[in-house]
């Protein structure tokens, strides 16, 4: 008697558990980014548009991207992207603290984040003692002529990545 009840109980519990797991999986997948979002194409940046010493902002996957053509007085850095002998700083323009867009301050030659006071230099390096824990992130890029293709990983990007310089 009791074994038959146990069996019924376990069968019911088992089927319910399987159903619950399936249901949660479906719910999780519904909440996932859509394939169309994931496939959002690449962005091509025309570097001839970049003015020296003044960052321009591009858009890639909904995120703003800084492209700064460095002037002579801005120190070179191994994170720089060099195209045809010109140094550029390229980074995702979202503060590595909590994601606000830092604004470029011409006077101090820094990127200042108004949200919690983070500061980055012209190579995207975070100044110490402030909330951002790491430099501005470098997006995947490939160099084609005088353009950057954001979203594809060219050899220059892979070299930076290998040296842990992209984040």
């Amino acid at each position: 008697m009791s074994t038959r009840r146990d069996f019924m109980g376990m069968a019911l519990g088992g089927f319910t558990a399987v159903g619950a797991v399936g249901g949660f999986y479906a719910a999780k997948r519904t909440w996932d980014p859509l394939p169309s979002v994931k496939a959002a194409g690449s962005t091509i940046v025309d570097l001839s548009q970049a003015k020296e010493g003044e960052p321009m902002t591009e858009k890639w996957r909904g995120k703003p991207i800084f492209v700064l053509r460095k002037s002579a007085d801005m120190p070179a850095h191994e994170r720089d992207v060099v195209v045809k002998g010109v140094r550029y700083h390229v980074s995702i323009a979202l503060c590595t603290h909590l994601g606000c867009i830092p604004a470029y301050k011409k006077a101090s030659k820094t990127f200042f984040c108004a949200c919690h006071g983070g500061v980055f230099d012209t190579s995207g390096i975070n100044l110490p003692g402030l909330p951002p824990p790491s430099p501005l992130e470098i997006p995947p890029f490939a160099i084609e002529g005088n353009t950057l293709v954001l979203g594809s990983e060219g050899p220059e990007y892979l070299a930076l990545k290998k040296n842990n310089l992209v984040v």
Binding site: W31, D32, P33, L34, V37, R61, G62, K63, P133
Partner: peptide, 22 residues
């Protein structure tokens, strides 16, 4: 989660790389 860098979790919450339609 800070240094945990769970950005794929953040993107999962948003359903996109940035806040958008999803």
């Amino acid at each position: 989660g800070g240094s945990l860098e769970a950005y794929s979790f953040v993107e999962w919450i948003r359903g996109d790389y940035v806040p958008a339609q999803a």
